[in-house]
Nucleic acid binder design. Structure first.
Lengths: 231, 231
DNA sequence: CGCCCTATTGAGATTCATCAACTGCGGTGG
DNA sequence: CCACCGCAGTTGATGAATCTCAATAGGGCG
């Protein structure tokens, strides 16, 4: 019998600041059964509905986890950054599609290994639970963004969100491994609306945009105001 | 040490079709340490940020789990129906506010009891994992609704969602324990838009609305078409 | 140098929110 | 028993936010 049961889903959670497994990491025991793989831009790592044979940890690059509807509408549930674990399916099938944002290196291990190890290792179980919880908590915040924030608020929140995932925001420009369309699909907006919001923020001197994959947050407090709907 | 760690959050998952704990239910061991409580309409069961001392199972009525922003904007993350477990916080604090939709009876047990029991009972651990997964999966679907569906599609999806949670939809009218404003706050819409969408669906003979807390789904296939964006 | 892809900007259309009036039901009290 | 009140829901008219469609700009690569 397996610890990992019932419903399908995928997730991604930062387990440590270092992309690779280290001694002391609750997932370290998986290192022995892991192999690394490369994917390039827009390549599919797994599809929603695929049999979930593996779980993954992102070492380099960025990944989007999304749902794609029959008519092509796409909703990105989450961006995976280096160090995050994803494709953490607990059912037979992945509940999200994973695609590479650019060049990507992942570590991958058979799902069954986790189930087996978790039986023996309480620390691993705890870490799994903790990852699920962080996942869920993030999804709840995401719901608020999509349901109750304006376009500009969402874009500001998004920038702050990415900034907070990077280890303790310093002053230098934030790396955005995803394109504008990806941001739009994460925020439930169109690419044009995302652009306009970014342009607005730039005009108001809250951010700088040295190039399309970098944003410098020049006024965190003001950005937070915008994100919270402060006029 | 506890199995339940790190991040705050609350959830609600149907564990069985019967509201109460039964032998065979993985959560049955909790029955002995549970007490039952009553709440009435709009009463708060717990607040986001409260220290999470208890977890709950809903026996009767309905509960909303929501986030409320400083400016009053509200996003409902989930409706709790009889049989669902919620307030399942894994951190020190609840990450959502729980409020009664009407008269409510809940079963409640100290969170610590779950942690202790989970150490010993693999079946309970599995059930906890399974609940988290269902929770997360539901949140992902919810994200798609909010991010990529039109008002009418959302309302149709919502009705189908509630219908599917009730045990195997029969023909008779669906009970909606929540008010129109609650539906709006779940769907990221205004109350007026929800009304208009319902009226539309009624005009098109897809539903009947005998009274404000009941909806009869008269054409499931057509409703599903609407929900999926079929014109 | 030129092409392709992505991003940006602009103009007009559409959806949904806002504001306001009205309806219907349930409860209360004369 | 009936009139009134209050709240939740519905409907209507208008406006704002966002989407759509179209044109332009900019960067990277052959």
């Amino acid at each position: 019998m397996s610890l990992l049961v019932q419903p399908a889903y995928s997730n991604s959670v930062r387990t440590s600041l270092e992309p690779f497994f280290h001694e002391g990491d609750a997932l370290f025991p998986l290192k022995a059964v892991s192999t690394s793989l490369h994917f390039s831009r827009n390549q599919t790592i797994f599809n929603e509905g695929d049999v979930a044979r593996y779980s993954y940890k992102l070492l380099e690059g960025g990944v989007r986890l999304c749902k794609i509807r029959p008519d092509g509408r796409r909703q990105i549930a989450e961006f995976v950054l280096p160090g995050d674990v994803f494709g953490f399916a607990l059912d037979e099938e992945y509940s999200l599609t994973a695609e590479a944002l650019g060049d990507v290196i992942v570590l991958r291990w058979p799902r069954g290994q986790v189930e087996r190890l978790a039986e023996e290792l309480p620390a691993l179980r705890k870490e799994l639970m903790a990852m699920l919880c962080r996942e869920l908590s993030a999804a709840q915040e995401h719901l608020v963004m999509l349901g109750r924030q304006t376009a500009k608020e969402r874009v500001a929140s998004f920038l702050l969100l990415i900034a907070n995932r990077r280890d303790a925001g310093n002053g230098d420009p934030l790396l955005l491994p995803m394109g504008r369309q990806d941001i739009a699909d994460y925020l439930g907006l169109t690419i044009e609306t995302v652009c306009r919001a970014l342009t607005d923020l730039k005009r108001e001197r809250l951010i700088e945009i040295p190039d399309r994959h970098h944003v410098e947050l020049r006024n965190l407090a003001a950005l937070e105001d915008v994100a919270e709907g402060g006029e």
